[in-house]
């Protein structure tokens, strides 16, 4: 062992800075979070051990249920729409002459360059009631105004617009890379059989693209479960009041941060984080297992 260390110390030395940061700012906080979740703590007075009380409080809170209801609705709509749009974009570009394809590819990718919070801030002023471009145009052509950002019926869709607008270009690039990997010979064979473009997409592109589609879906799923910045900006939220009208855009991460920084219930906020981690890890592992099956 001693000799080993002597020979290998240089390796560990080079790894030290990374792992020091990793442990102090990633591993330790997770353990610390689990520890905190068993205490009632406002961050100021002495923490008081309460066992699983925080967990039952969080699980029974009305806002938690709302937040999870919202996130399920959101994920189930935004991920498929996002995938379909990105796929259509990828197909559009794939079918173009190369020169145009590159131009459109850059243009479609442009929104993905814009940070999410910024996209939300731009769209907020396009969708705003009475002063937003969409509603001003609606009223100019005599349509009923839509309170995109305050009417609970529409708020979720406003968020989805922002989300798809930002992420479609990103997923499109990944899908194009996937499509490019499909062997040309498969298409040639189909052409011999007299398949048209549409049949080609259905019979060759989509089945061949399944691993890529699967990856983008998983990725979209996991990031959608942690959605925070866009709804936060769209609803003009603060730690004291968040989620927008009737909490229609209240999501778990928002609720967690609000519990911590708004009501100073850090124990409950930590418990909230642990629960959310389990939910996300659960979905991730399911998808991981499916992925393994597909690959077989």
């Amino acid at each position: 062992m001693k000799i080993n260390l002597k020979r290998n110390y240089k390796h560990y030395l080079m790894l030290t800075p990374f792992f020091l940061m990793f442990i102090v700012f990633f591993v330790y906080p997770i353990i610390y979070g689990i520890y905190t979740s068993f205490y009632k703590w406002d961050g100021i007075h002495i923490p008081e051990f309460v066992g699983l009380d925080n967990y039952s409080k969080v699980l029974n809170a009305r806002t938690t249920k709302l937040a999870y209801k919202n996130i399920i609705n959101y994920v189930l709509i935004t991920v498929p729409i996002g995938m379909i749009v990105s796929f259509i974009l990828a197909i559009i570009i794939q079918a173009m002459p190369r020169k145009w394809g590159n131009f459109f590819k850059s243009a479609y990718f442009l929104p993905s360059v814009i940070p999410l919070y910024l996209a939300a801030s731009v769209w907020k002023w396009i969708l705003a009631a009475d002063v937003g471009l969409v509603n001003v145009l609606f009223s100019k052509i005599g349509l009923q105004q839509v309170a995109w950002l305050t009417d609970p019926k529409y708020m979720l869709y406003s968020l989805i617009i922002v989300d798809v607008w930002v992420s479609a270009g990103f997923n499109m690039i990944i899908m194009i890379a996937g499509i490019n990997d499909i062997p040309e010979s498969l298409y040639d064979a189909a052409k011999v059989d007299g398949a048209n473009k549409f049949q080609e997409i259905i019979n060759i592109t989509i089945p061949q693209l399944i691993p890529t589609l699967f990856f983008t879906t998983t990725w979209g799923f996991i990031s959608a479960l942690q959605v925070f910045e866009a709804p936060w900006i769209l609803t003009g939220s603060t730690y004291m009041s968040y989620g927008g009208n009737r909490n229609a855009l209240l999501f778990p991460v928002m609720d967690m941060l609000g519990k911590g920084f708004g009501s100073l219930k850090f124990g409950q906020a930590a418990a909230y984080g642990v629960i959310l981690a389990f939910v996300i890890l659960f979905f991730t592992s399911i998808q991981f297992l499916i992925n393994k099956k597909i690959k077989k």
């Binding site: 700012f25 906080p29 967690m256 850090f266 959310l276």
Partner: peptide, 16 residues
């Protein structure tokens, strides 16, 4: 860490 959601450790990270 790749599969561990980042946002989840926000509160304890802040406390740390």
């Amino acid at each position: 860490a790749l599969i561990m959601p980042k946002t989840v450790s926000m509160i304890p990270l802040y406390l740390t």
